[in-house]
Simulated scan of single mutants.
Amino acid sequence: MTTPYDRDALIELIRREALQTGTFTLASGKTASYYLDCRLVTLHPQGANLIAAGMLERIDAMSDKIDAVGGMAIGADPITAAIVTHEGLRGGSMRGFMVRKEPKGHGGGRQVEGPVKAGDSVVIVEDVITSGGSAIQAIRAARAFGLEVRGVVAIIDRLAGGSEAFAAEGLQLQTLLTIRDFGLQPDA
């Protein structure tokens, strides 16, 4: 049995578990007055279920059949796992994959890992979008592997240029939430 998506419950969980205020340096290099540590929610039992349910709603609404979901290791891994678990519980066949920051130095030497093959239609998943840099790395690696990237789905958009960066890649960003859902505005 899967958990239905409850937007308000996800907002409350993120507010309680993941939202911190202060001065922070983000992965993009920008300084911010708040930090969203979504690992505290993607690795939380209720959080993982709510995120998977919400993302599956977004993915199911896409016009293309999606074969797999995945993104940049390590941040996207719990999201991917939650989605494929929900997909399995509902009898679906969507698989997961992960993208390494660089190709593995041994074994098959792959940068994209998982049960995917060239030509599969995929969605890149991410926790928090700022500039979109990490997800764009995943998009480019997935494309180089031969995957057909159909979109990006994230938990939260910081409204700091990520959507425009994906548009430049020919992709649309869909998110469950934005920082405005927490009463926040984009940092200058």
Score class of each variant (00 low, 15 high):
Gly107Leu: 07
Gly92Asn: 11
Thr31Asn: 04
Pro78Arg: 09
Ile66Trp: 14
Gln111Glu: 12
Leu159Gly: 06
His44Gly: 06
Gly162Ile: 04
Asp127Phe: 01
Gly105Arg: 15
Ile66Ser: 07
Gly70Phe: 14
Ser28Trp: 15
Ile124Val: 15
His106Lys: 11
Arg7Ala: 00
Glu113Phe: 10
Ala135Met: 13
Asp60Met: 07
Gly22Asn: 10
Gly162Met: 06
Leu13Trp: 02
Val153Arg: 00
Ala52Thr: 02
Thr21Gly: 03
Ala32Val: 00
Ala188Pro: 14
Asp60Gln: 14
Gly170Cys: 07
Glu87Ser: 12
Ser28Leu: 14
Ala52Tyr: 01
Asp127Leu: 02
Leu184Cys: 06
Asp181Thr: 08
Asp6Thr: 00
Leu89Val: 04
Lys104Thr: 08
Thr23Glu: 14
Leu177Trp: 02
Ile139Ala: 02
Gly133Thr: 06
Lys117Met: 06
Asp181Arg: 06
Thr31His: 06
Leu147Val: 12
Arg7Asn: 00
Thr3Gln: 09
Asp77Lys: 11
Val149Met: 04
Leu176Pro: 00
Arg7Ser: 00
Ile124Pro: 04
Val99Ile: 13
Ala53His: 01
Ile83Cys: 07
Ala167Gln: 15
Ser121Gln: 13
Ser28Met: 14
Asp77Asn: 13
Leu26Cys: 05
Phe166Ala: 04
Asp67Met: 08
Ser131Trp: 14
Asp67Gln: 13
Ser131Pro: 11
Gly114Tyr: 10
Gly151Val: 02
Leu184Gln: 06
Ala81Gln: 08
Gly29Arg: 15
Ser121Trp: 05
Ile51Ser: 01
His106Ala: 05
Phe166Asn: 03
Val123Thr: 09
Thr21Ala: 06
Ile156Phe: 01
Arg58Gln: 13
Ser33Ala: 10
Leu40Cys: 06
Phe145Gln: 08
Val84Asp: 04
Ala27Gly: 10
Ala27Pro: 05
Gly88His: 12
Arg180Phe: 07
Ile124Ser: 09
Ala154Pro: 00
Asp60Trp: 10
Glu87Gln: 13
Met72Arg: 13
Lys101Arg: 15
Thr80Gly: 06
Ala53Cys: 01
Gln111Asn: 06
Arg100Trp: 12
Thr31Gly: 02
Cys38Asn: 15
Arg39Glu: 05
Thr178Val: 04
Leu19Ala: 00
Gly108Thr: 12
Met98Gly: 11
Ser93Met: 08
Gly151Met: 03
Leu147Ser: 05
Thr25Arg: 14
Ala48Met: 09
Glu102Asn: 10
Val152Lys: 02
Thr2Ile: 12
Ile139Thr: 03
Ala73Val: 08
Gly91Lys: 13
Gly132Glu: 12
Arg180Cys: 04
Leu19Tyr: 00
Ala168Cys: 05
Ile136Pro: 04
Gln111Lys: 14
Arg16Gly: 02
Glu148Lys: 15
Val84Lys: 04
His44Pro: 05
Gly71Ile: 08
Ala160Phe: 10
Leu184Ser: 08
Asp127Trp: 01
Arg7Pro: 00
Leu159Ser: 07
Gly88Cys: 07
Arg16Cys: 03
Asp181Gln: 09
Ile129Met: 03
Leu43Arg: 14
Gln185Ile: 06
Tyr5Ile: 00
Ile156Met: 02
Val69Tyr: 10
Leu40Val: 04
Gly109Ile: 09
Glu113Tyr: 08
Val152His: 02
Glu12His: 01
Leu176Trp: 00
Gly70Glu: 10
